[in-house]
């Protein structure tokens, strides 16, 4: 483990599902980097492969799915070569995850203290009493009032927002290097969402924890992330610094996504829509998967575009960018 290497470096990751109906490539040639203390926004519609990417990093892709290619370098070590036991040792200790639906992530029949203490003791030889002290502190850290009493409660005694705070507290328990948050605020009220976003950002800055924030909501990423990675049909279509991408999207899909966000500046104007539907991963069109919905579609789109590096360092997967760069 070298301190110079980025926290997470995903290279050409491919994850496939071997179903009865055929092989589905849910994640295809996905690459991105997350440096120490940075926040990466992983954006895409449902079915774009962003959640599977998160699970692939943690080695939690269930049968019949499998990581079939690429590298996942975590602090310089390739996780794809890890055995199940090695993986288990870093799950929850070095990499934590927070899930989308806070009503479902806590076991309903176990008390909160049980679920927190077991997360500590799975990775450290520590007395139950010491573990409880740490669990209490973690609850306090995420802003849960009177943590001593709340430790003794069952999940159903918490509201949705409070449960998601508990989930974050559990993710933070072992001071991980990386937290993967899979749409953690989607199921919550807007006001609670803002609170959690603010607090998470603060905690990550303080502790130097890196964060991968998976979402379909560009506005969430806009205020939170350092970098953004846009996925479409299992592929990364554009990745770069958040301000570069949001101010001047280069991929037509990113452009469409930004255009479809309602905003005060655009009051009264019709929202732009991306025509058509997300294609089924079972039978993707030949070439660029976005061509059927793309306003700039051209005959060359029948051939899969390659990743092109632009001058500002961002990567885009589109023929138009490819050509523009070639002419420049």
């Amino acid at each position: 483990m070298s301190s110079s290497s980025p926290t997470l470096q995903v290279e050409n990751l491919q994850t496939q599902f071997f179903t009865k109906a055929g092989v589905v490539t849910a994640v295809d040639d996905v690459s991105f980097t997350v440096n120490r203390g940075e926040v990466l926004g992983l954006v895409g519609e449902s079915g774009s492969g962003k959640t599977v990417t998160g699970f692939s990093i943690l080695g939690l892709v269930d049968h019949p799915g499998k990581v079939t290619g690429g590298k996942i370098l975590f602090n310089g070590e390739d996780l794809t070569t890890y055995s199940e036991n090695q993986y288990r040792a870093i799950r929850g200790s070095r990499i934590s995850m927070v899930f989308q639906d806070p009503m479902m992530t806590l076991n309903p029949v176990l008390r909160v203290d049980t679920q927190m203490v077991e997360a500590i003791r799975a990775h450290e030889k520590i007395s139950k009493a010491d573990a409880l002290v740490r669990a209490r502190d973690a609850l306090g850290q995420v802003g849960i009032p009177s943590p001593d009493e709340r430790l003794k409660s069952y999940p159903h005694q918490f509201s949705g927002g409070m449960r998601q705070r508990v989930a974050f507290a559990i993710a933070l328990l072992n001071k991980p290097d990386l937290i993967i948050a899979d749409e953690p605020t989607t199921a919550l009220d807007v006001t609670i969402q803002a609170q959690i976003l603010f607090e998470t950002q603060k905690l990550c800055r303080e502790t130097g924890t890196s964060l991968v924030w998976i979402t379909h909501d560009l506005t969430v990423v806009a205020g939170l992330a350092d970098n953004i990675c846009v996925m479409y049909a299992g592929k990364v279509v554009e990745t770069g610094k958040i301000d570069d991408v949001l101010d001047d999207p280069k991929h037509p899909y990113t452009e469409g996504l930004i255009g479809s966000v309602p905003s005060r500046n655009k009051r009264g104007q019709p929202l732009t829509q991306i025509p058509g539907m997300t294609p089924s991963l079972l039978n993707l069109p030949k070439g660029c998967p976005f061509q059927k919905r793309c306003q700039y579609a051209a005959p060359q789109c029948e051939v899969s575009p390659k990743i092109t590096k632009c001058e500002d360092g961002r990567l885009v997967r589109c023929h138009r960018v490819e050509e523009a760069m070639a002419h420049a």
Partner: peptide, 11 residues
């Protein structure tokens, strides 16, 4: 989900 979450905790 809570089983997957338990696995994500490294249990």
């Amino acid at each position: 989900d809570y089983i997957k979450f338990a696995r994500a905790k490294g249990l």
